[in-house]
Simulated scan of single mutants.
Amino acid sequence: MAEGGTPTDFAHWVEPSLPILARYAARQVAADDRDDVVQEALIRAWQRWSTYDESRGTPAGWLVAILADRCRRHRTRRPAAVLVELVDHGVAEPSGRDLDLERAVDGLSRRQRQAVDLHYFVGLDVAAVAEVMGCAPGTVKATLFQARARLRELVGDDDG
């Protein structure tokens, strides 16, 4: 894609994906490390920009896949109850059920948590989640189905 592209071209190309990258990093690593992990991913993306193939997916999916790799390699993980941190700083007022859900998400398998984070918290569609996870969209749908079932077990489902 970017053979001979300039840093300015790259910045314009990346800009629409920055909020997605920030949301995903916030779900994966400790607050103090979020910007560093995104920066590491952007450096890696810049180095590999010429290998991006638009026929294989979106820029956002490609960038989040790189970020996911950087997050896996990072030493610190996000604290188990990020919502508690937000409440302590007056940013959010989640109910007890919200805190239970956050803890339950942390109790999912790594693959289920990744699918839930990417689809429900970051807002990627199933195709983009599949691109990031390196699997078929049907696999993502099945993983999300299993994750929702597990979350109902962990949190309790009053509706059924």
Rank of each mutant, 00 (worst) to 15 (best):
G156W: 02
D125C: 07
R111A: 15
P94I: 02
A22L: 10
D125S: 08
R73S: 12
D98E: 09
D9L: 04
L154S: 04
P79M: 02
L99P: 03
R73H: 09
R27W: 05
E102V: 15
E131M: 04
E153D: 15
S109R: 14
Y52D: 02
L86A: 12
I20F: 11
D32K: 08
A41I: 05
A147Q: 12
I43C: 11
R27T: 07
A22W: 08
T139Q: 00
R78V: 14
T139M: 03
R48M: 09
L21C: 07
A128C: 06
R75K: 11
A92L: 13
C71L: 13
H89S: 10
V91N: 00
R103P: 01
P7L: 09
S109I: 10
Q112S: 10
R111Q: 13
Y52Q: 05
V82S: 13
E54T: 07
D125P: 08
L154D: 01
Y52W: 14
R148C: 07
L42K: 04
V105I: 15
R27L: 10
A81Q: 15
R113S: 06
R78E: 10
M1V: 13
G134S: 09
Y52E: 05
A11P: 04
A30K: 09
V37K: 01
T58W: 01
L108Q: 12
A60Y: 00
A147I: 12
L67Y: 05
A2L: 14
D157I: 11
R75C: 04
R34P: 01
D159I: 00
H89L: 03
T143C: 14
P59H: 00
I66N: 00
A142Y: 10
Q39W: 11
A11M: 07
G96T: 09
W46T: 09
G107S: 14
